[in-house]
Design a binder for these strands. Structure first.
Lengths: 135, 135
DNA sequence: CCGGATCCTGGTCGATACTG
DNA sequence: CAGTATCGACCAGGATCCGG
């Protein structure tokens, strides 16, 4: 439970955690901003039927380890953002598909990414300036 | 450089990293979704003049260590989201203030947090269902 | 083809103590 | 008051091997 207080107000106001807003948001944000989650969601959203199989995803995402792809997909499945369907074939085939929930995430996420895209140069400039001042 | 390929298309399409979209987004997202950054930005946005001093922030954020508050504020300053102003007084006083850039982040971030808020119950339900199936 | 199990490394963050 | 410095615990995530 994180409490915040107004400027000169001694009464602590539980705004951000407990009143379930920013704290859950932070929890979820930290989940999807891990190394691969958004990337997978975005990639799936661009696939036919918003679905792809394990091996395809691994080929599409250059650099992800098998373990991380597995665990990331598990987390997305756990959160209800993707579904996992196993086809009882030989060799086995597993399809991952974005749910409606997962699709709904695309829009607000895109807003944020657009903002980042628009301001990325500003941020980079700021970093350069900051770093150069620091010897 | 992460490359993705269209479904049955062998030509790799460099959509996400290099075409500076999702990769920079991911980099920035991972920065602001660290343990405290968004919280600080949101809190500052609610302050008079969007500014507060070090000690105030520490009191408002229950649980943050002095070290993390310092380093988080440094990162925000480096990215140009907040400014840091030192007043040459005794005892010293340092004011942190949200920049226009930082303020601009509030809107898209709010969209995302609203989405999370609206869908949080669904996500929690999904997690419970998933976890209960797993013994 | 898919992914669980195990080991190991580097980075993140809290605790504590010390300065201007 | 507002930091910096140092230490250590913890854990995300890569490499590798194995199993269905």
């Amino acid at each position: 439970m994180v409490k915040i207080t107004k400027n000169k107000d001694l009464e602590p106001v539980t705004l951000l955690c407990g009143g379930p807003e920013a704290c859950t948001a932070r929890e979820f944000l930290s989940k999807i901003s891990d190394k691969w989650s958004i990337l997978i969601v975005v990639i799936l959203s661009k696939q036919k039927d918003h679905s792809a199989r394990f091996g395809e995803l691994q080929k599409m995402i250059n650099g992800i380890s098998q373990r991380m792809l597995t665990t990331t997909l598990r987390n997305l499945e756990r959160d209800g953002l993707v579904t996992r369907e196993v086809f009882p074939e030989v060799p086995p085939r597993v399809e991952y598909q974005l749910t409606n929930l997962g699709l709904g995430l695309i829009a607000p996420m895109k807003n944020l990414m657009d903002w980042i895209g628009m301001n990325w140069n500003t941020i980079k400039k700021s970093r350069e300036g900051f770093d150069s001042k620091r010897k």
